[in-house]
């Protein structure tokens, strides 16, 4: 659904916001120097688990594999039944129904990647059709990709209008907008794309598809969190953040949470407003939690792979 450009001009910030990469690097290094130990660590690791979008996005995903992943989402570790459940399971659209079946009766959301993921190279019309289909199949969240080509051409209106149209197609489902920061090249572009996505109606902004390197980095995540902060200051609306890809260890996750805490504060320390898109992270966090409880690291063989 194309939007009126004049209306858009009013809602976009008056000028593009410059980002200083050296300054971002310095701030990021401060987060990674926070020392998170003991009860503080356990609390944060449990929070991180609740923020997980347990993900499988492989061309050879099978219904059986998705079923197993959903069982893992419900039941992270048998020996620790008190653990929170993950935020969502993230799958390709055609597998939404499979996930829905297994997750029925739980509060775990189903996220479906949409809009010709991961390239976004498709006409808007087909992007809207698939989005509507996945929502109808039971997706609670839609993860779309922006049209990077149009972005680089400077056709920001196209990018914004497309997001707005997908948002409308989502209906009640939440919309996460993937910027694919690994292709945006500069932090200035990351900021620009974040602003466009939020103003066009994104509920969440997300770094990456996981198909392009680099995927999520602390640097792009900080730029996006600061964009969210400015949007909140300006509008009072809380936009969520999802770094995805490249976060494999509990320690990395802790540093992301430190960044979140010191940039946006208490209101964002919830799965409603922050998610990790990751496939390997869960087991590393579980391993750390078991270590905090028993004092020893267990073999990875004690943790089910999915």
């Amino acid at each position: 659904m194309p939007r009126n450009n004049a209306a858009l001009a009013v809602t976009l910030p008056p000028q593009f916001v410059p980002i200083d990469e050296v300054g971002i690097d310095e701030r990021v290094s401060r987060f990674s120097k926070r020392s998170i130990k003991k009860s503080s660590k356990v609390q944060a690791l449990k929070l991180a688990l609740s923020m997980l979008d347990l993900t499988t996005l492989s061309a050879h995903d099978t219904p059986e594999r998705v079923r197993q992943l959903c069982h893992k989402a419900k039941n992270l570790l048998e020996t620790m039944p008190e653990l929170p459940h993950v935020g969502a399971v993230c799958v390709y659209g055609p597998l939404v129904k499979v996930a829905k079946e297994v997750l029925k009766g739980t509060k775990i959301h189903i996220a479906a990647v949409s809009t010709a993921f991961p390239s976004g190279m498709a006409p808007l019309k087909t992007k809207l059709i698939e989005t509507r289909q996945f929502v109808a199949d039971g997706a609670d969240e839609i993860d779309m990709v922006i049209s990077r080509g149009k972005f680089f051409e400077g056709d920001y209106d196209y990018v914004a209008d497309e997001i707005a149209a997908v948002k409308e197609a989502c209906g009640k489902a939440h919309l996460k907008v993937i910027l694919e920061t690994g292709e945006l090249n500069t932090l200035d572009n990351v900021r620009r794309a974040s602003d466009i996505a939020m103003h066009a109606g994104a509920d969440f902004i997300k770094t990456s598809t996981g198909k392009v390197q680099p995927a999520a980095t602390p640097q792009v995540t900080l730029v996006m969190l600061e964009a969210i902060r400015d949007f909140y200051y300006a509008t009072g609306k809380k936009i969520g953040m999802k770094p995805a890809g490249g976060i494999a260890t509990a320690k990395q996750a802790l540093h992301y949470l430190v960044m979140l805490r010191e940039t946006l504060g208490e209101a964002w320390l919830t799965p409603d407003l922050f998610r990790f898109g990751a496939s390997k992270l869960a087991n590393d966090i579980l391993m750390q939690l078991v270590k905090e409880q028993t004092g020893a690291y267990q073999s990875i063989d004690y943790f089910s792979m999915e």
Binding site: R34, S35, K41, Q43, L47, L257, G265, A267
Partner: peptide, 17 residues
């Protein structure tokens, strides 16, 4: 201010001397 951020968080850092 309803738009202010709250940095008194439920998650704090334990002492790390």
């Amino acid at each position: 201010d309803p738009k202010s951020l709250d940095f008194k968080t439920s998650w704090e850092y334990a002492p790390a001397p």
